[in-house]
Amino acid sequence: MSDTMTNTQATGGDGAEAPRGVENLPMVKALNAGLRQAMLDDPRVLMMGEDIGRLGGVFRVTEGLQPEFGTDRVLDTPLAESGIIGTAIGLAMHGFRPVCEIQFDGFIYPGFDQITSQLAKLTNRHEGQLSMPLVIRVPYGGHIGAVEHHQESPEAYFAHTPGLRAVSPSTPNDAYWMIQEAIASNDPVMFFEPKSRYWPKGEVDFSSSAVPLHASRVVRTGTDVTLVGHGAMVTVLLQAAELAAAEGTSVEVVDLRSLSPVDYGPVVESVRKTGRAVVAQEASGFASIGSEIAATITERAFYSLEAPVLRVSGFDTPFPPAKLEGLFLPDADRILEAVDRSLAY
């Protein structure tokens, strides 16, 4: 695993590029820089997906990569998700490190069989004699007012599948570093990109080094209650923590970062301190990531708990038409309502 990864070696073309320090970038640009760095670092890395080459992706995450690296390394594919994943599997068998883009969360299901029955199982089927260093990038989640199939949070299906790893960055800095670590991993990684966080800018520290891909992290310290989430939800949790602070409640926020495996250390440590936990997610709650986190907190921190672990999730409905998404998606007020319930025990 590439936890010692640094960015001092960035060279390309004719000469060394000037080292980059800290820049204020949106996540799409951070991802683009991370993908580019991965392609510079390893000539076996290639990109595949619908509209990722000439157009640079519908979100422009791969913009500029095809002109720089050529059509043999940035492949515009036919419009077929199973074909993209299945072909990428064959390329990985041939020693490439494919990075596949699924255009939107809700379009991943035509590739579900290749992901769950083949990609996830091939290393096991080969009894370790074959690695599957393949990354599947999935822009996911709501808050963008789009039509059906464009705002979903399907991460639980993949976190549930043995053989896959699943991660989701919440900031541009994490996006830059985590995409490179995911590509460097010898296991298949589902890389969930919170598309509502694609455009807000954040600091990207090109001169630092990556933290381990599967580490969770305390992003705000507090003493009264622990909030746990991932992806775009982390921003909502931080907003809720700010509002709670104004009312005198001290909230700790943990960003999971990795959904499989989950790094429970910081989560459990936090709950042992606060005695209360609220787990939040955009996805429907039944049989979800949040369910698993809540159950594990209860198992591991039972004697520290002052209240049951509460969950705040999308409802168990299909993602609604865009005009109703504000009611479906947990916002800071819904988080605070759960915080109040937790504190009332």
Partner: peptide, 19 residues
């Protein structure tokens, strides 16, 4: 799983060509 390997073979053959 019926037919899955046809895509793996296609990717493998694409790798042969790219290399």
């Amino acid at each position: 799983v019926i037919g899955s390997q046809t895509l793996h073979a296609t990717g493998y053959a694409l790798g042969q060509k790219l290399d």
